[in-house]
């Protein structure tokens, strides 16, 4: 790994920490407030690519584990990882990797803006929502004993908010791609 990659990984982890300090926004039509931090997975994958995004989130989880209050609302420490939503935090690295993998395959310099937007949105939804829930929900079901079907049904309440996040992440990723492209392209 070259030094630039290492720095990008660290800087993105730091950006995710700062996103946790931004006050959450509430939208009228969605029950759960949107925290900017939870967009980090989608943003990381779409902006710095699979490998660096995954390492960035492993670093971030390390920050949580060693007791730094880096999660939104000033939370952190091993207690969060041991709690019901620990799986979502552990799952971030995998989700960022899959997001990045899709983005790297779909996005190429020559393609039209519309296709870039579709590509980023697809990557954010599959990686940042599907993969993340595929890890987080069974984990929650296991530690809390809530039957899997009920846990999955309950998390549907978060899906509208997540789709809004994917939309915002798509537009932001596209803006960064236009201004300062870092996404490694793959055939």
């Amino acid at each position: 790994m070259n030094t630039r990659d290492l720095v990008l990984i660290a800087l993105f982890a730091a950006i995710v920490v700062v996103l946790g300090l931004i006050p959450p926004i509430t939208l009228g039509f969605i029950p759960v407030p949107i925290t900017a931090q939870s967009m980090g997975v989608m943003l990381a994958g779409c902006i710095i690519g699979a490998r660096r995004a995954a390492l960035s989130f492993l670093l971030f989880v390390l920050l949580v584990a060693i007791g730094l209050p880096v999660l939104s609302g000033g939370r952190g420490g091993l207690a969060i990882l041991a709690g019901p939503s620990g799986g979502f935090i552990i799952g971030w690295a995998v989700a960022a990797y899959i997001t990045g993998l899709i983005a790297e395959r779909v996005i190429r310099p020559g393609i039209s803006e519309g296709r870039q937007l579709i590509g980023f949105f697809l990557a954010s939804v599959v990686g940042g929502i599907l993969v993340l829930y595929a890890i987080g929900v069974p984990w929650l079901s296991f530690v809390t004993g809530t039957p899997l079907v009920a846990a999955a049904g309950g998390s549907l309440a978060f899906i509208p908010g997540d789709l809004v996040k994917a939309g915002i992440a798509t537009l932001a990723a596209r803006a960064v791609y236009a201004g300062y492209p870092l996404l490694p392209a793959r055939a």
């Binding site: 800087l11 730091a14 950006i15 700062v18 996103l19 900017a36 967009m39 943003l43 902006i47 915002i168 537009l171 932001a172 803006a175 960064v176 201004g179 300062y180």
Partner: peptide
């Protein structure tokens, strides 16, 4: 978020 990430 866009400007923040690019600048950083």
């Amino acid at each position: 978020i866009g400007p923040l990430i690019i600048l950083t």
